[in-house]
Design a protein around this nucleic acid. Structure first.
Lengths: 241, 241
DNA sequence: GAGTGGTCTAGACCACCTT
DNA sequence: AGGTGGTCTAGACCACTCT
């Protein structure tokens, strides 16, 4: 980019205009902004230029385009705060804030750990692990996908408890008397994979916060390795020291 | 998006091809990938389609396009790890990893705190604060911008020490005998502002990790409020519990 | 069928860099 | 001057949604 002269670019001008309109409340949450064609005539520009502007708003999290319907304004100020500490887990976090939440198991399997999983869980390649893909939602809206890996030896016959999955935490406590303790977490900003974007109902360039954590058994042995992908524009993760 | 049928989209096909080529080492770090025109003829598609593909690689952090020159392959596997704990600061982190780093003061001012600053530093609107904008680099490449706010009363005449700025930490220790302790941090994934993108020499859709922290005086009073924007594709932030 | 966003084509002009 | 990426125009066809 790098505009040396300050002649405003057409698509940025339109984007700024739309953002201003949203901030000033002309277009409110869950309402539609004008269609691309309307914006074309309003600004006397080509549709591609409008799409560039709209794309910017999309990536910034202001709107979500829906095929065949229009672009809907998101709820983006006041992101939901998620507290990460050695003991907190998703359900408790949400309960505390009085938010309606749900966890859904979208996939699971049992197999050999890959190298990263071996390293983080202290296993070798002949061991077995359970892998869970959990989708979490607030108010019916998907907010994160978490891949959780646990050694089979620590949670034998885990599949027996997956029928009416509600909360991982609950299964671990009820059936295994296990309460994993968070040992470390890596934070990284990234973009979703196409698959994750689809599941999270997210446009492909909306940034996500990737949190890669290792949880231990109270004894200190690693018990759970998880990679969470949280949509970035609507969430904040708080760590207290 | 949502491709129900699995007829691959042209631009995704090209993007996948390029990523594969980079992974396989056909295009190596700091080398150029073929120009947009070359890719047009190679794939028999319009330049806009190629640009869509190249744009994807750009956002994912694989390449950085440079106006008039070409698209250069980034160093993206093995992101640099930044350890966040109650005491660590930038310089120490980098020293430990043996990386050549530098901090550069790009702006400072003294003024009234805004509401957010008042809240985080326990000030009221008539107080004064120093604001510093610090650009940090590794191997001459910019990696983060941090806005640091400190109450004037805690660091009186701070401007006197800004002439040959090297390290904030050093100034606080040497001239004020202060060693702030990290109290809490918020992590969020977002996109850079246009200004930040320019300073960080970052394409506008590359995600950044925003870390908003409050540091305390050993006594417990807030001493420093900072907002760091770190380029997301090349860094990981580690928190140990 | 009409309206919407998603993909793609075929051009144009510009600013920037290299030679 | 020629190559490169950045912006923009003017169309086309498609898939999806609403009615």
């Amino acid at each position: 980019m790098k505009r040396t002269r300050e002649e405003t670019l057409r698509h940025l001008e339109i984007a700024d205009y739309l953002i201003r309109k949203i901030c000033e409340g002309h277009y409110t949450v869950n309402q539609k902004i004008p269609s691309e064609n309307d914006l074309c005539s309003q600004f006397n520009v080509n549709r591609n230029t409008v799409r560039q502007a709209v794309g910017r708003l999309t990536n910034l999290g202001w709107i979500t385009p829906v095929h065949g319907k229009g672009c809907f304004v998101n709820q983006i100020p006041d992101p939901i705060v998620y507290v990460l500490s050695s003991k907190t887990r998703f359900s408790e976090n949400m309960k505390k804030q009085g938010l309606e939440h749900s966890s859904q198991l979208i996939h699971w399997d049992k197999g050999r750990p890959d190298k990263e999983e071996q390293r983080n869980l202290g296993l070798n390649e002949t061991d077995l692990v359970y892998r869970l893909e959990i989708l979490r939602s607030i108010d019916q809206k998907p907010i994160s996908i978490t891949t959780t890996v646990m050694p089979e030896q620590d949670v034998p016959l885990f599949e027996r408890h997956l029928n009416q999955f509600q909360s991982l935490y609950q299964i671990l406590i009820e059936h295994y008397q296990l309460q994993p303790i968070r040992s470390k977490s890596f934070f990284q900003a990234s973009l979703p994979s196409l698959k994750d974007a689809e599941i999270l109902e997210l446009p492909e360039n909306v940034p996500i916060l990737t949190i890669e954590s290792v949880m231990n058994h109270p004894s200190g042995l690693p018990l759970e390795y998880s990679i969470a992908r949280v949509r970035g524009d609507m969430h904040k993760c708080l760590v207290e020291f």
